[in-house]
Design a protein around this nucleic acid. Sequence first.
DNA 1: TAATAACCTACTAAATCGATAGGTTAATAG
DNA 2: CTATTAACCTATCGATTTAGTAGGTTATTA
Lengths: 135, 135
Amino acid sequence: MLSKKTKYGIKALTFIARQPERNPVQTSEIAKSENISQKFLESILLILRKSGFLGSKKGKGGGYYLIKEPKDIKMTAIIRVLEGPIAMVPCVSLNYYEKCDDCPDEKTCSVHKLMIQVRDSTLNVLGDNTLADLT
Amino acid sequence: MLSKKTKYGIKALTFIARQPERNPVQTSEIAKSENISQKFLESILLILRKSGFLGSKKGKGGGYYLIKEPKDIKMTAIIRVLEGPIAMVPCVSLNYYEKCDDCPDEKTCSVHKLMIQVRDSTLNVLGDNTLADLT
DNA sequence: TAATAACCTACTAAATCGATAGGTTAATAG
DNA sequence: CTATTAACCTATCGATTTAGTAGGTTATTA
């Protein structure tokens, strides 16, 4: 299941990407429009800023804005930052690999074999889609 | 993330499917071989029996056995029973659909659009794979 | 200097996860 | 008939995660 954090993050980024001008968008505006708790959204946008997706400006007229072009922001990148690993088990994760404490041998593990396929197909979809595709 | 429940369940089913004879396999044997807490595994095999994947026999020489051929057991079916929905958001789930309380319109929701693609690609992989493929 | 909006820290209620504990029931062996 | 075996059932539990809330501080603008 996708966490609300990730879901809200994607919605917020889409909202910002949809803006005709490149003017900063305020958290409050996104929160109201997308039915998200403003405080919760604040923490999410902060993460996205620290991860290099967004820039910010304080004070009146401030807000968040995209740093890169929507078409250059892959969904894999967004989801990895907000949700963590895309793989369903750590032992097939490319960016968050971890060995299973059960499972003596990954090569003979049935789950491993299956989850590599799931990972790859998911990766294909999320790698092909950019923020521009969601606009 | 895949829960241990599902992971263990798949491993156990694979273990049973690998048996040369169709003799019942005991929980204790699977637990030991696959490094799974026996009590936890008991509860998982019970679910799989109640869902129609396994038959059981009590007493000495008892255990669990497959009811259908491994090649006739799709991974989608197993995962739906143990893990629940395959979709990453309830609003794109085929078997566990639920409307999002935020999101007034699914048609214009960016997350919805994306997650349908993820769902379909995952469904393809899990639908193509049967227990026989994991053996 | 006041208002604004991002930024930061800490806390919390509820749910879920991965078990563990301690039994009961049904089938088999002797 | 009795003991053993292994599935079956019920309850509980500590740890972690989730989705927030509360209450402030800092930087920018009018």
